[in-house]
Every structure is written in structure tokens, then in C-alpha cells.
Design a protein around this nucleic acid. Structure first.
Length: 332
DNA sequence: TCCGTATGAGAAG
DNA sequence: TTCTCCTACGGAT
């Protein structure tokens, strides 16, 4: 159940373990059978996150397969003959991985996590004597298999082979992504465009932070925690947010989400030495690797508890169909 | 066995 | 705003 940090991790992991390799693609469940056939036997070149969307790129040189797929009318490969698998995990889509030691060793995510500690979609299991993928369990939409390991995808909201035009449209529709900064090969996102998109609308800022056209990758947890850390009432309209507040929100999102990528889970109680937040005295300086789950956030799912900042009872309400958590006492 | 829940998003009304 | 889809899991029945 991912916010943007999970998708960036997954993209990195898929590239690490499958990049440059010819991959068998199948759909044990059957619902992606046609798409799997388009990709099967191609080389997986790299995976990339665009906000919460995962784009997995395959080259056009198949294992003797037809490159023209009349089914559906439109060609699925772009001008270079590349094909792109678009995955959106939705609320409960998840990947699981397994393979031999070299497969696990290639993973930037590393060894399997303890049960209960794993964030969906990022665990890697090392099979003692890898002889191929296990029999599929449950509804496996897509299975990727290389010589050294496998990946299963279950429950995605979206899973389809798309065109180069589709990819372009996706990029243009996506709001600035706090996880895409200078040094990435794509465009550099910054706080200025976020500020402009946030501050021009008369819509609750708590709703705008979840709007992927305003900012990419933020979900329900980061939404609640960012606003608490900033001391901003989620019901305040976007146009009432000051430039400074928008800049601070962006800086904090950059920090927290990068930390989410590093840790493999959302931890919002960390201190950013470069951009202190309003509740600086309450943030922690620890490494955060072993913090129990309930201590990794200030307000998300802390309904009824005392606000760590002012002692007011943490409230919950439904905003745009999602549970919102905030402190009515100190978020203004 | 059923029910509720979940870090999402698009369509319908 | 409400509904719908995608799936797994834990707890109640």
C-alpha cells in the first residue's frame, strides 16, 4: 500500500534485479494474458517511477515475437520499438520477490525483512536452493522471471502496456515530485511549481496535497503528517497558504519522502537538520530503523490520543473519501 | 465464513 | 458525494 516512496524503491529494485535481462512475462491469474504476451521474452531495460505510477520499460527486440499486435488497434511499442508496462498499485497492489543469492544481492532493498516489519511490495526472499519460481499463490496478475529470480504482482489498480504518447501524457499530467530532484536525468522539480499549483485554488489544502496533479507521490499518511509538522489546518484553502508555508511544506516533503525511500517505510518523526519544521522540538534525531510502527507518525491513525504538541485530542474526519487525521488545537 | 480495513483513483450522479 | 474496482489478512461470528 504505497505512497510515492514505495514506487521509487520498486522502480530501483526492478531495475537492479531485472535490468538488462531477458524476462519471461506471464499472467498466472489470466487477467493480463494479452499484455504479458506482448512483453514476454523481451529485455527489461529499466523501471521508473512517475509519481505513484510505475513504468517498466522493455526493449523492442523480442524472442522472435511479432512486433505488430493488431489486437486493440494501437501499437504498444514506441518509435524505438520499446514497450512500456504501466503499473499503478492502488490501495493494495503489491510485489513480492524471490530468487537465488545473486538475485537478492543485486537488490538495493536487500535481505528479507522480519514479518510484520515489511512494507508491502518491497520484501525480497532468498530461496536457499533456487530452482525456479514457486507455484503462484493467490491472484498473481503478472509474474516476471529471469534466470536468477522472480517477481509477482498482485492486486494493482492499473496494469497495461502503453504507448509512447501515453507515457508523455502521464508525465505532463503529473505534478512536481519531491523525489525527483537535481541529479535525476528527468526534469528537475522544485517548490515553485508546487507553490503555484497549491496556492491558486479555493480547495482545502488537505485535499490538494492528495491531488497528484498538484504534487506527485503524496498519499494519506504524508498528507496528514506534513500538515501536522507544519502546523497547518487541513481545511484551510490552498489560496490561503502563504508562499513561505508552501516552500516549507515542499522542503519537508522532500526530506520525509527521501527518508521513506531510504528506510522502506514512512517515518515522519525525523528531524531535518536543514529545514527545521514548526514542531522542531518534537522531532527525533534517531536513525529510525527500529522504531515501532505506532511511533513512526504523529497523527496518522492516532485518533483520540493527545496531540504531542498541544495535548488536544487528535481528530479524524473523512475528506474527499479518505480518512483525515489532524489536531484541531494547534493546526491553524 | 463473513466482515472490515487498507499508504488509490476514476466514473457516475 | 457515492460507488466501484483491485486483494490479502485478521478478527468476529
Amino acid at each position: 500500500m504505497p505512497e510515492g516512496h514505495s514506487i521509487h524503491r520498486l522502480a530501483r529494485q526492478l531495475t537492479d534485479v531485472f535490468g538488462g535481462q531477458r524476462v519471461r512475462v506471464s499472467s498466472p491469474q489470466g487477467r493480463f494474458a494479452a499484455g504479458a504476451e506482448l512483453l514476454d521474452g523481451h529485455v527489461l531495460t529499466r523501471a521508473e517511477a512517475v509519481g505513484k505510477q510505475l513504468l517498466v520499460r522493455f526493449d523492442g527486440e523480442g524472442a522472435g515475437r511479432t512486433t505488430n499486435s493488431p489486437a486493440g488497434g494501437s501499437r504498444a511499442d514506441d518509435a524505438d520499438g520499446h514497450r512500456v508496462l504501466r503499473i499503478h498499485l492502488g490501495l493494495y497492489g503489491a510485489f513480492s520477490f524471490g530468487g537465488d543469492a545473486s538475485f537478492v544481492g543485486a537488490s538495493s532493498i536487500g535481505a528479507p525483512r522480519r514479518m510484520g516489519e515489511a512494507e508491502n511490495g518491497t520484501e525480497v526472499g532468498e530461496d536457499a536452493e533456487y530452482t525456479g519460481p514457486p507455484a503462484p499463490v493467490g491472484a498473481v496478475r503478472v509474474r516476471l522471471v529471469s534466470d536468477h529470480g522472480w517477481a509477482d504482482l498482485r492486486g494493482p489498480t492499473a496494469c497495461e502496456v502503453i504507448t509512447a504518447e501515453d507515457v508523455q501524457a502521464l508525465r505532463e499530467a503529473a505534478g512536481p515530485d519531491p523525489l525527483r530532484q537535481a541529479g535525476d536525468d528527468e526534469r528537475q522539480d522544485d517548490g515553485a511549481s508546487f507553490s503555484r499549483l497549491l496556492r491558486r485554488r479555493g480547495v482545502a489544502c488537505g485535499q490538494l496535497l492528495m491531488d497528484q496533479a498538484v504534487v506527485s507521490g503524496i498519499g494519506n499518511v504524508y498528507r496528514a503528517e506534513l500538515l501536522w509538522r507544519a502546523g497547518i489546518d487541513p481545511y484551510r484553502l490552498g489560496k490561503s497558504i502563504t508562499e513561505q508555508e508552501a516552500a516549507d511544506l515542499w522542503a519537508d516533503a522532500v526530506f520525509l519522502m527521501h527518508d521513506g525511500v531510504r528506510l522502506g517505510r514512512i517515518v515522519t518523526t525525523q528531524r531535518d537538520p536543514h529545514h527545521p519544521v514548526a514542531r522542531e522540538e518534537l522531532t527525533l534525531d534517531t536513525d529510525a530503523a527500529d522504531i515501532p510502527d505506532e511511533a513512526t507518525r504523529f497523527v496518522y491513525k492516532h485518533t483520540g490520543e493527545a496531540c504531542p504538541h498541544c495535548g488536544t485530542t487528535i481528530a479524524t474526519a473523512v475528506m474527499a473519501g479518505r480518512n483525515l487525521y489532524w489536531c484541531p488545537g494547534c493546526q491553524h
